[in-house]
């Protein structure tokens, strides 16, 4: 479970996340939506303890991420698919992460197989397409077989085959009882993948509901999203 309590993050005079509170429960995929700059990625970084909150709390399984001893066994995250050393092979990239959390080479081979990168495991990650890097990032998130997963726009750069694969993977992970938080800008894809939707705009919570509830009053999830975020898309607007 992921829980945000009055989470606030300020960078200089920019309020990136503004008293944001919501819970992500296990057992279904939770879609995380919002315009660019709404605070989705910042919220995920705060959950992982990469950035320190200005105030409020971000909790995973009831505790702070920074207190986890071997965090990859509890939380897996893909924040930025490009965040790999271009000269390191996919296998070594995963192995570096695995070693730090006492995960063995067999699991590394397993996740490479799972994401379909076994054939290029010894190739340098710098030569990978965005879609392949997304798959590598997903493999890294799955390394420790964690119960909580966060993916920041994992569908970007994937081919139609890959998009469908991610949809199945996300739903499968949730059906196994895991907590899955997934951000994306593809509304139609999100409508197919997620059961619950959290929408943020300008760092604040705009909606927290099931897909069925959101689409009840609108023709589609996309229409619901457009209507709900209509006032939140101006960048750098005075706050």
């Amino acid at each position: 479970m992921i829980e945000l309590r009055q989470l606030t993050k300020r960078y200089g005079d920019t309020l990136a996340v503004d008293e944001l509170s919501f819970r992500v429960e296990p057992g279904h995929v939770t879609g995380f939506l919002g315009p660019n700059g709404a605070g989705k990625s910042t919220s995920m970084r705060l959950v992982l303890g990469l950035d320190a909150p200005t105030s409020g709390q971000a909790l995973v399984n009831g505790g702070r991420y920074a207190d986890l001893r071997r965090p990859l066994h509890e939380v897996g995250a893909l924040l930025d698919a490009g965040a790999v050393h271009p000269g390191r092979s996919a296998y070594n990239h995963l192995m570096c992460l695995a070693l730090s959390n006492d995960i063995g080479a067999r699991r590394v081979a397993q996740v490479l197989e799972l994401v379909g990168l076994s054939g290029v495991a010894r190739k340098k990650a710098g030569g990978f397409s965005l879609g392949m890097k997304q798959r590598l990032g997903i493999a890294a998130a799955l390394l420790g077989d964690p119960g909580v997963l966060m993916f920041d726009e994992p569908v970007n750069g994937l081919d139609p085959d890959g998009v469908r694969w991610i949809r199945g993977l996300m739903r499968g992970l949730a059906e196994e009882g895991r907590t899955v938080l997934l951000s994306s800008h593809l509304m139609s894809e999100m409508a197919l993948t997620a059961d619950r939707i959290v929408i943020v705009g300008r760092g604040r919570l705009v909606a927290d509901a099931t897909v069925a509830e959101l689409t009840a009053g609108y023709p589609s999830l996309e229409e619901a999203y457009m209507a709900l975020t209509a006032s939140s898309v101006e960048y750098g607007a005075a706050r």
Binding site: L50, L68, G82, H85, P86, S100
Partner: peptide, 18 residues
């Protein structure tokens, strides 16, 4: 600095938060 430049540091710190 190579980890800071390519973003790998965030992945590293997610694996080793201390």
């Amino acid at each position: 600095t190579s980890e800071q430049a390519d973003g790998m540091l965030r992945t590293s710190l997610a694996a080793v938060p201390r």
